[in-house]
Design a protein around this nucleic acid. Structure first.
Length: 468
RNA sequence: GACCCUAUCGUCUAGAGGCCUAGGACAACACCCUUUCACGGUGUGAACCGGGGUUCGAAUCCCCGUGGGGUCGCCA
């Protein structure tokens, strides 16, 4: 913390009621990048005050997601449930200062009030029954009822802030009501905890989702009532599903870990997310180092962006091409093991990766391609009928005898193949395609001489003998 | 319903009054490369939501519509 720039401190504050999904991941990425860009501090805060819906599994899932993406926090994770004493202290202070008050209106009365207002097509809001006002006589508190604590929101004027991504936003105080900051059981509510935390933790830039725009004026009022500094706010627009509708489990509101499961590299997801709703001219492909160097709030799009799987696929293909063979080999091993294929030591999965990495756009595809190297595939009857003609078979026999003694380097294998072509008078595809069908169970593959080399003499001969 | 935000190719976007006969990328299509399939390369088609202003000049500024999104909990 010593070398940190204290003029910038951002936070990511998820509530552990589910996994880290793609929208949350982008919010985290932007908050993280902003802190990194300015040499500041990135705080992780777990907002777990909803005891009924928060789970330790969800906390872990969020931590796992952040780790997979490589978004390391500098402070935290803080847990709001561990800060209860502090919240209660501040509530006491506000009550004493008269910036908050007890309200005895019951839930039932509130529901009735809301129903009534909705029937009249009005905006539902608290009616201010228990709000103290100079010269106003308050009702007598009913006995046996635990009151909630409400914030005494200003009634006049506007709350305004220069949103770092959307520009100036103004909301009339008349639109706001006296919201509850502590429940009847004494536990504080969301808007209140956020304010105390942002204040105590010295957050300078609140970068969060669009869905919080309406909370911001309340939080600013609260901060001002507390005499706390008001951070800068930047509200990120939402990510929409592939079909332009709200993100759902069907298309993207799944855990970021699902992307790992589905064969995506974290750097591809990061690059994709970074470019979704943010731009640096025409730049499409950038590392996180580069992203951090370029990142700013001025170039964030203020409208919602539609998620596009095809573009993610393209980036994934790009990063797979760039990835280290050994790393890809491990991915092959891991993914094949999940399918029950354990013996992936020979051939070296890294060598298979080298063969396929520039042909696939997904790690699962890569693993699928590697599968045939470990488990001898069965070509379909149609495929065999189509490609394993008598001419092809005799050519393969010729090749088999040459392969028995040939050196298994791609160079020599290439020459050996040509010898068979010369001996049989066939063209390369007439031999190579049947050979692929026999060896890998399908008519397409990378350069056949390289496939032979990776598969190795023993296995090649075995598969050839099996088929002829 | 009220309030807030928003609107450029199918999609992500560049664009901050003249550089725009609107640029890039994904996707699509065509061609090239090729030992098959891919990769790759080259190219083509494709957009400023509508209407009013302001201005010598508007994709860019203002207003009104319309479309989209968000929020209206003792949830976060």
């Amino acid at each position: 913390m010593t070398a940190k720039n204290h003029s910038v401190k951002t936070r990511f504050a998820p509530s552990p009621t589910g996994y880290l999904h793609i929208g949350g991941a982008r919010t985290a990425l932007f908050a993280w990048a902003y802190a990194r860009r300015h040499g500041g501090t990135f705080v992780l805060r777990i907002e777990d005050t909803d005891v009924a819906r928060s789970t330790p599994e969800a906390v872990q899932a969020i931590l796992d997601g952040m780790q997979w993406l490589g978004l390391a926090h500098d402070e935290g994770p803080y847990y709001q449930m561990q800060r209860m004493m502090r919240y209660k202290e501040v509530i006491g202070q506000m009550l004493a200062a008269g910036t908050a008050y007890h309200c005895y209106t019951s839930k039932e009365e509130l529901d009735a009030l809301r129903a009534e207002q909705e029937a009249k097509k009005e905006k539902p809001r608290y009616d201010g029954t228990w709000r103290p006002e100079s010269g106003k006589t308050l009702p007598t508190p009913p006995s046996g009822i635990h009151p909630v604590v409400r914030f005494k929101n200003p009634t006049a004027g506007v709350v305004a802030w220069d949103d770092q991504v959307k520009g100036r936003i103004e909301i009339a105080n008349a639109e706001l009501d006296d919201f509850i900051i502590a429940r009847a059981d004494g536990t504080p509510t969301y808007n209140f905890c956020v304010v105390v935390d942002d204040w105590d933790m010295g957050i300078t830039h609140v970068i969060r989702g669009d869905d919080h725009v309406n909370n911001t004026p309340r939080q600013i009022n609260l901060l001002e009532a507390l005499g706390a500094p008001v951070p800068r706010y930047g509200h990120l627009s939402m990510i929409l599903g592939d079909d332009g509708t709200k993100l759902s489990k069907r298309h993207g509101a799944v855990s970021v870990m699902q992307y790992d499961e589905d064969g995506y590299l974290p750097e591809a997801v990061l690059n994709y997310l970074g470019r979704l709703g943010w731009s640096h001219g025409d730049e499409e492909i950038f590392s996180m180092t580069q992203f951090v160097e370029w990142f700013d709030l001025d170039h964030i799009t203020s409208s919602a962006a539609q998620f596009n799987t095809e573009k993610l696929n393209w980036l994934n293909a790009h990063y797979i091409k760039l990835a280290d063979d050994a790393r890809l080999g491990q991915e092959i091993h891991r993914r094949l093991a999940r399918q029950g294929v354990e013996n992936t030591a020979s051939p070296d999965p890294g060598e298979i990766a080298a063969l396929y990495k520039d042909r696939v756009s997904n790690l699962n595809e890569l693993a699928d391609s590697a599968h045939a190297f470990y488990v001898a595939p069965h070509a379909s009857a149609e495929l065999k009928a189509q490609h394993l003609t008598e001419a092809a078979k005799s050519a393969l026999k010729d090749l088999r005898s040459r392969l028995a003694s040939a050196d298994f380097s791609p160079e020599v294998l290439g020459k050996t193949l040509k010898e068979t072509l010369a001996a049989t008078g066939l063209k390369m595809p007439q031999v190579a395609i049947p050979l692929r069908v026999v060896l890998l169970g399908q008519p397409q593959s990378p350069a056949i001489d390289r496939v032979l080399a990776v598969l190795g003499r023993t296995e090649v001969l075995r598969r050839l003998d099996q088929a002829l």
